[in-house]
Design a protein around this nucleic acid. Structure first.
Lengths: 140, 140
DNA sequence: CGGGCGAACGTTATGATATAACAACAACGC
DNA sequence: GCGTTGTTGTTATATCATAACGTTCGCCCG
């Protein structure tokens, strides 16, 4: 699986950016910057700035999201389009799996909640920690 | 959820915990651990673990919230009661001011969104970045 | 062609955030 | 007293992230 551009506004990725993005997609989960660095040393990336610069660009264009609460990064699970600014993440504290959730109602509620305080939101970080379906104890 | 004792709002803080909490309340805003350390050196706190331990306890009992996206800590702005597990924060990127928002509808939306994915949430981190009322350009 | 220029690169060094580990001590029940 | 438990103070170190600098790349335009 390669770093093919997706939808509308995806400029071509540079080599480093493609390597980082591919690593995140292959991981099918979140990775920290230093995990990416370790994974990509074999391919010639040697120092943190190379990773962080690629991640900066990838998050800027919406291909990658940053998980603030775990200091990790995850490839966008949507078709790249909209909703990035209010994406929510369900992070399993047991297995580390991350699922990206998007919901118009949630976005609307957040916006109205902010408006009620005179606040103009620019971006949101919404991260749920808990237990995913597969890790939940079998009892109901 | 809401496990803080109702009868005793403050479970007797130790000296260090009280110093850290007082510093956060006086700041009327967010502070990083190292800002707290600098502020409290004069009172005898010398090393990061002393700060982090106090913060750990204060967040455990709900008197302090951690802002994941800014690596900072803020005193709870509620009357201490419930809603801590789904509190949202509006963080002004201009002046740094932080307002704690709480909304039952938001909490419900998040829960139902998670349930739809078979996810069982334990805690949420909801942080809005943007511009507060006072910092917003006057037109618009 | 080739000069200019902005973006990306590689590298070194350092800054910022957070925790491990351990010895000393206080508070408390018995 | 004496153990148990939790907090403290301290040193050292782990983890996360960026500053700064010169070099190279891609590409437009003269």
């Amino acid at each position: 699986m390669t770093s093919a551009a997706k939808g509308s506004p995806s400029p071509r990725l540079t080599r480093n950016q493609a390597m980082v993005y591919d690593a995140l997609v292959s991981a099918s989960g979140a990775m920290t910057a230093y995990q990416l660095l370790d994974a990509l040393r074999a391919e010639g990336l040697n120092a943190p700035p190379q990773i962080y610069r690629a991640l900066q660009r990838l998050t800027d264009i919406g291909l990658v999201h940053r998980l603030e609460s775990t200091h990790a990064f995850v490839a966008c699970q949507h078709g790249d389009g909209t909703g990035h600014d209010t994406a929510a993440f369900a992070i399993c504290d047991d297995c580390g799996d991350v699922v990206e959730l998007s919901d118009a109602r949630l976005a609307r509620d957040l916006r109205s909640l902010a408006d009620g305080s005179g606040f103009t939101p620019h971006r949101a970080s919404i991260e749920l920690h808990g237990t995913c379906e597969r890790c939940r104890p079998a009892n109901d």
